[in-house]
């Protein structure tokens, strides 16, 4: 554990909480892609199966359980509790275009050809593209509420901090997780355009922003 990794995990947690509290307080999930949230729940489910097989640390176990619970709570709020506000007409990204290549790749490129490792790899690859339905939705509707932008900012910050963490771990421990690093870098690139718009528009007080 290093400070970058911890800060990355905390950014991730803050992002998830921002989204959950936004939906809860406004009693609405307008502008939120339910598809992205289902994909993130799937990411956590397939990655954290090792909760049953290996103990790493109390921190690790607690965070996994918290991420799982929060992601399922978010999906519940969108599709059950506040489903009347769910904007399904604009949440039209074809998820199978992500799932098919990701499933295929996780069978081809993994650390060992076992169900647990293939599912772990699947979760890493899926996480790198899971935000695409949300970004697609923003592009389609032309704008996002500032709170949605804060959510995306902390999600992107989490990814950026994880890269710093990997550089740190490579130099201090010789640790290098090729699958996580390559897909992590790809994932972070998706946020670059968004980061630029966030800094130039949202932080300069316009509140809302639209993607070109």
């Amino acid at each position: 554990m290093n400070i970058f990794r911890l800060a990355g995990d905390m950014s991730h947690l803050v992002a998830i909480l921002i989204l959950l509290l936004k939906i809860w307080r406004s009693r609405s999930c307008a502008g939120i892609s339910g598809k992205s949230q289902v994909l993130f729940a799937l990411v956590f489910t397939t990655r954290y199966l090792d909760l049953f097989t290996s103990f790493i640390s109390a921190y690790n176990t607690v965070m996994k359980v918290v991420f799982l619970a929060l992601s399922y709570a978010t999906v519940y709020l969108i599709y059950m509790r506040f489903r009347n506000s769910y904007d399904s007409e604009n949440d039209t990204f074809r998820v199978e275009f992500l799932l098919v290549p990701v499933i295929g790749l996780s069978f081809l490129e993994n650390y060992s050809f076992t169900p647990m490792e293939i599912l772990w790899t699947f979760s890493i690859f899926l996480e790198s593209v899971a935000i695409m339905p949300q970004l697609f939705m923003i592009t389609k509707t032309g704008e996002a509420e500032s709170i949605t932008n804060h959510y995306l900012f902390f999600l992107g910050l989490y990814r950026a901090l994880y890269i710093v963490n990997w550089v740190w771990r490579y130099h201090t421990e010789g640790f290098f997780d090729q699958i996580a690093v390559v897909s992590g870098v790809v994932q972070t690139i998706f946020y670059c355009d968004f980061f630029y718009l966030y800094v130039t528009r949202v932080l300069r007080g316009r509140g809302k922003m639209s993607l070109p």
């Binding site: 990794r5 995990d9 991730h12 990655r47 090792d50 097989t53 290996s54 790493i56 640390s57 690790n60 965070m63 996994k64 991420f67 650390y111 060992s112 490792e117 772990w120 994880y162 963490n165 640790f175 290098f176 997780d177 996580a180």
Partner: peptide, 10 residues
């Protein structure tokens, strides 16, 4: 190298 049974990151 890394052990495949030890994914310690979240």
């Amino acid at each position: 190298g890394m052990r495949v049974d030890d994914h310690d990151e979240l």
